[in-house]
C-alpha cells in the first residue's frame, strides 16, 4: 500500500488542472431541468476541485481516490451508505480533518485553483472562506447574539454588528422567532432553531462555500423543510455541499449528486465515489447498477 500512497501523491501533484473549467468533461452533458432542484448548467464555474483524494485514519484507508468538481452557486449532495466516507470527504474540504491527529489526506483539493493542502496554506484562512454546519447542532453555550457574532468578531468585522446579526438570522429564517430574546442562551432554543442558528452563525462570516454534514438529520420534517428552503435561497449566493442520508432531500435540494459506496477489501472498508452527475441523472438514469440499487432502496 505504501507504494500506492507514494504514487498517488506524485501523480496528483502533476495533474493539477490548469484551468478549472476543463477539469470536468464528464459533466458536459446537462440534463433537462428538474422540478425542484434548480437547473444545473455548466455556466457556473468550478470553485472546488477534488482530484484523487485519498483519506486515511492512521493505517486505515477510509476513502479511495475521489475526484469531482464542485460548481459555485449550486448545491452538491453527497449520498451513500453509512461509513462510505461522506463526512470524511466533506470535512477534508475545509481541512476540518486536521483536527483529528490520525487523519491524513492525500491528493489535491483546489479552491479557485489553489491547492488547499499545499504547504503554506493556513487552515484558519481556508475555514473562513469555507464554512461548515455540523450534523448535530452545536451552538456555543453563549447568547444567541454572541453565537452569531462569534465569527465576525474573530475576523475583526468592522461594520455594524447588530445589523449583521439581524441579517444573518433573517437569512437563516430564524430572526422572527428570536428577535426578542437575543441575549438568551442559545441552549434555550429547540433543536431545529439551534440548527438554523448554526447556519446563521456560519453565514455571518460570509463564507464562499458552505459545507453541511447532514444538517437536518436531527430535525423533524417541518424544521427539515425550512432548512431545505433555506438552502435553496442560500445557493443564490453561496456554494453549498451537503451530506444527506435522505434520498428525497438530495433530490429536492441538490443540483448535482455524488454517490459514494464502500468496498470491502483486505478486511478494510474503503469508501469510493461511484458516480457523480447532475441530480436528475443520478435519480432517473444512473449509469451504475450500484447507484440504482441504492436510490431505489435495494441497497443491501
Amino acid at each position: 500500500m505504501a507504494d500506492r500512497i507514494g504514487t498517488t501523491v506524485d501523480s496528483v501533484d502533476h495533474t493539477r488542472p490548469e484551468t478549472l473549467e476543463d477539469a470536468s468533461p464528464s459533466l458536459a452533458a446537462t440534463r433537462s431541468p428538474r422540478v425542484t432542484g434548480g437547473t444545473p448548467s455548466d455556466e457556473h464555474a468550478v470553485i472546488l476541485e477534488l482530484s484523487d483524494v485519498n483519506a486515511y485514519y492512521g493505517d486505515f484507508h477510509a476513502v479511495d481516490s475521489v475526484s469531482l468538481p464542485i460548481r459555485e452557486k449550486e448545491v452538491t449532495a453527497f449520498i451513500g451508505p453509512s461509513g462510505c466516507g461522506k463526512s470524511t470527504v466533506i470535512r477534508s474540504i475545509n481541512r476540518m480533518n486536521d483536527l483529528i491527529p490520525t487523519a491524513r489526506i492525500e491528493g489535491a483539493i483546489t479552491y479557485h485553483g489553489v491547492d488547499l493542502y499545499a504547504p503554506g496554506v493556513d487552515p484558519v484562512e481556508v475555514r473562513r472562506r469555507i464554512g461548515m454546519v455540523f450534523q448535530k447542532p452545536n451552538p456555543f453555550p453563549k447568547s444567541i447574539y454572541d453565537n452569531v457574532a462569534f465569527g465576525p468578531k474573530i475576523s475583526k468585522y468592522s461594520g455594524d454588528m447588530d445589523e449583521l446579526v439581524e441579517r444573518s438570522l433573517t437569512r437563516a429564517a430564524l430572526w422572527d422567532e428570536v428577535k426578542d430574546k437575543l441575549s438568551d442562551s442559545a441552549y434555550a432554543l429547540s433543536g431545529g432553531q439551534q440548527q438554523r442558528l448554526c447556519i446563521a452563525r456560519a453565514i455571518a462570516t460570509s463564507p464562499d462555500v458552505l459545507l453541511m454534514d447532514e444538517p437536518a438529520s436531527a430535525l423533524d420534517p417541518i424544521a427539515t423543510l425550512r432548512i431545505e428552503e433555506l438552502m435553496y435561497e442560500l445557493k443564490q449566493e453561496y456554494t453549498i455541499v451537503i451530506v444527506t442520508h435522505n434520498m428525497q432531500q438530495a433530490a429536492r435540494v441538490s443540483d448535482r449528486t455524488a454517490f459514494f459506496s464502500v468496498d470491502v477489501k483486505e478486511g478494510q472498508r474503503t469508501g469510493r465515489l461511484v458516480e457523480f452527475a447532475d441530480t436528475a441523472t443520478i435519480f432517473t438514469n444512473p449509469q451504475h447498477d450500484e447507484t440504482e440499487d441504492y436510490i431505489t432502496g435495494r441497497f443491501g
Binding site: 484558519v124 475555514r127 455540523f134 456555543f140 474573530i154
Partner: peptide, 27 residues
C-alpha cells in the same frame, strides 16, 4: 469541553488561541 464546540469554533475560522480563549475557557 465537548469536541463539537471546538469544531464549531474552528469551523468559523477561529485559530487555536482564540478557540481556547473564547470557547474552551468559558465553557
Amino acid at each position: 469541553v465537548p469536541r463539537s464546540l471546538r469544531e464549531a469554533s474552528y469551523g468559523l475560522g477561529a485559530n487555536k488561541a482564540s478557540t481556547v480563549r473564547t470557547v474552551v475557557f468559558p465553557a
